[in-house]
Amino acid sequence: MTIHTQGITVALFATCINDVMFPGTPRAVVSVLERLGCRVEFPLDQTCCGQMFTNTGYFDAALPDVRNYVKAFSRYDYIVGPSGSCIGAVRHQHPMLADYAKDAKLAEAVDEVVAKTYDFTELLVDVLGVTDVGAYFPHRVTYHPTCHSVRVAKVGDRPYQLLSKVKGIDLVPLEAADQCCGFGGTFSVKNPDVSVAMGADKARHVLDTGAEYLVAGDNACLMHIGGLLHRENSGVKTIHLAEVLAHTEGAAA
């Protein structure tokens, strides 16, 4: 893959949950990418990847989101989102949904736009060729590799590559890191007891690390684990990977 050191235009797919609930994360993506010399655009007609609908069994409710995604992003060469889960859904479920709709034109357009869609960590490491983004974060953190970032978007060890280059960071390993935190989208409310039982174990492992921050690439999972940590008054904060990478010495937390 060609590595572009700067000057590319990147369309930001904020994802609906970040747009509404966690705007600090897409703002952090903008800040990191602009720092690296990219031009960032935010197509205002974007909405959501639709996986909440797909994964609950309502394919028809997800189809407008698939069409929206194509409409909002087709004209760009690089599309980036700060969520392994939503990027995974675009890659893995949008083609399936286009097939389901029996819409060959949509399927073709989806294939094209999917090929240009990146998780934030992939864009940094693979397209921009950087692992040191000039970040400074003088805290003890632990990283939870969210299931969809690892098993669907397949970001591999890119998050660790990026975190390990952050100045001042004390990155400590998380026990049973590869186990699901129990969020699981609508699973968290359709099977709340199991979801919380899984989350409680994840929260316990996080506490065992002595970290001040739990970092992940998906705010939905962080909302779930963070909800448990906050209920316990544990004093451990959650933060999206992009926000760690956006911190610089000038603006240390």
Partner: peptide, 11 residues
């Protein structure tokens, strides 16, 4: 179902 065990962040 969410808030029985988990706090919910404000938007």
């Amino acid at each position: 179902p969410w808030t029985r065990a988990r706090d919910l962040p404000m938007p």
